[in-house]
Design a protein around this nucleic acid. Structure first.
Lengths: 222, 222
DNA sequence: CGGACTATTGAGACTCCTCAACTAACGTGG
DNA sequence: CCACGTTAGTTGAGGAGTCTCAATAGTCCG
């Protein structure tokens, strides 16, 4: 068994019997776009694993601003609560399906299946590193750099049949809330990227990468 | 057993037998200030639990800038690697002691002790939320707000015999690298806080809180 | 006492945010 | 089929805040 193998794909790390154990205990949630899976402040009774689709985990600040803490993709674990209450709200961006596993069930399973627990630890550690990486990006000032980084992240996390074509399932507002920018700054950043022929848009929700090298340089921690 | 209990204190969550299991398998690391526990890029062979002291987990960017991804306090778990290699460097800020547990050992232990695995999951999930919370703070612009948030974080994570007195074990540079600010901005922020009589310094590494209400307001996600 | 390091303060450039107007796309209802 | 309202996205001008460069204190230690 490899120690801490990447983390992108939880299911690939699980043996068939482990998968069966989990999926047998799970309820399948079919969420349409905009469906709220759970709300911040509500009591937590289950953890979730995303199977398909994209969701957002966000928090509304006292100022009225909304910040998206993470986009949730396939195989991501979410719903790990604090003191028994969820701290974030999770809402579907696209049509999505998730597995819902009651807390006491998952605890029982892990109690008897330590190997599975290690896989979870690896997965959550991966998400922790993702979060830290994002903090690095937010720490920079350049709006174009932040957008470039998001594009690369989406490219890495979403399946893309055509090379150099990236889908953006989320709106500009959501991008802004995720990157810690104003909506306008996101728009200006995409305009600049387009103007410099680094990317081109096929409509507002699909991007073609024209100049990979420049994109990488912008996304890198320059 | 409570589902996901806070997370601040790992050891308090463990039964005596669990603690014995862990500490028996652990090597104790005594690190003087500035001692490097491990370096980014090196192969990972163990995970660590901080017992006493403060450390920093950082990464040097291609630009030459250094960003601190997390301060490590007592009971924090660190050293969860990516693909078998550490991605961050961990260095002691103060004199510190840590437990070092080889990877294969911890995996064997967790394999046979699912309950312990759940405690780890809770702990890492807690660190994940901490990281997300920090992302929120970094996303704001106000330097004073960021500094105020750091002060409150230190107050919460470090033992302080005297109320309203907070130790800052780290230097201004380290604060800047953590908050994503320039050193000068940190200095100006502390000056403003002092000028407005919200805090006062007993030397550069100790703060007295004079106006708790204002500090809270600044630190809040206003 | 000198030297190295840490911390503070000042002036100008740069970037983003806010407020605002404008365009485009879409669905509804007449 | 078209007018209309709503939502999403783009673009512009001014103001706020931080970053950089630079110079000035303060502190620890030999």
């Amino acid at each position: 068994m490899r120690a801490t193998e990447g983390g992108g794909k939880l299911r690939r790390l699980l043996t068939p019997s482990q998968q069966k154990l989990l999926w047998d205990a799970a309820t399948i949630i079919n969420a349409d776009a905009r469906h709220v899976v759970y709300r911040a402040g509500s009591a937590s009774s289950a953890i979730y694993i995303c199977n398909r689709g994209v969701l957002k985990s966000y928090r509304d600040l006292p100022s009225g601003k909304r910040r998206i803490l993470a986009f949730v993709f396939a195989d991501d674990v979410f719903g790990l609560a604090e003191n028994g209450f969820y701290v974030n709200t999770v809402q579907a961006i696209t049509k999505a399906t998730c597995y819902r596993i009651p807390l006491d069930t998952i605890m029982t399973i892990l109690l008897e299946n330590g190997a599975l627990g290690w896989q979870f630890i690896s997965k959550i550690a991966y998400e922790l590193r993702e979060s830290q990486r994002r903090t690095l990006v937010i720490g920079r000032r350049s709006a174009t750099g932040r957008v470039a980084m998001l594009l690369k992240m989406l490219e890495a996390r979403l399946a893309h049949p055509t090379p150099d074509v990236i889908d953006l399932p989320m709106s500009r507002s959501e991008i802004a809330e995720f990157l810690g920018l104003s909506l306008e700054s996101v728009s200006r950043a995409t305009s600049r990227l387009t103007y410099h022929q680094i990317i081109a848009f096929n409509g507002p929700h699909q991007v073609r990468v024209l100049n990979r090298q420049s994109l990488d340089r912008l996304a890198g921690d320059l």
